[in-house]
């Protein structure tokens, strides 16, 4: 399975990959993008099965990326991993088709639970 990690923080991309490995998903193929616009390009080039995306990013935010993909007719599995987890954001994410929103800080168990049924 191909997983694209979109986050403007290199530190957080490293943490997400480490946590995925700790959660038992280390054998999957990973790619990274540094913001929403780069994420959009990477979705085209890498053709991921799952996008794990930050919310607040320069150039194009996570929610803008999700909306752009949806308007293109691309229904790749999409989840947020973000610093903010207010009820309003969770509702907006769900309305736009996100499968989950994981608020930081997150553990391997949190990630495992969120990805249950999405990653075999």
């Amino acid at each position: 399975m191909k997983i694209l990690i979109v986050d403007d923080s290199k530190a957080m991309r490293m943490i997400v990959k480490r946590t995925l490995r700790q959660a038992g998903f280390g054998e999957h193929e990973f790619a990274e993008a540094v913001d929403g616009a780069n994420g959009y390009e990477q979705v085209e080039a890498f053709k991921p099965d799952l996008v794990l995306c930050d919310w607040n990013m320069p150039n194009m935010s996570g929610i803008e990326l999700l909306q752009k993909l949806k308007s293109d007719g691309n229904h790749v599995s999409f989840g947020f991993i973000t610093s903010e987890g207010t009820g309003e954001m969770r509702a907006t994410a769900a309305e736009n088709g996100a499968l989950f929103l994981i608020a930081k800080p997150f553990t391997a168990d949190t990630v495992k639970d969120a990805l249950k049924g999405i990653i075999s």
Binding site: S9, K10, T82, S83, E84, T86
Partner: peptide, 23 residues
């Protein structure tokens, strides 16, 4: 670069948590 990025990420994570606490 990694030092700056990591420390910035610490306060970014914490600010998101604080925002939720005082929401």
């Amino acid at each position: 670069g990694d030092l700056a990025d990591a420390l910035a990420e610490i306060v970014n994570i914490v600010a998101g948590m604080v925002k939720t606490v005082v929401n």
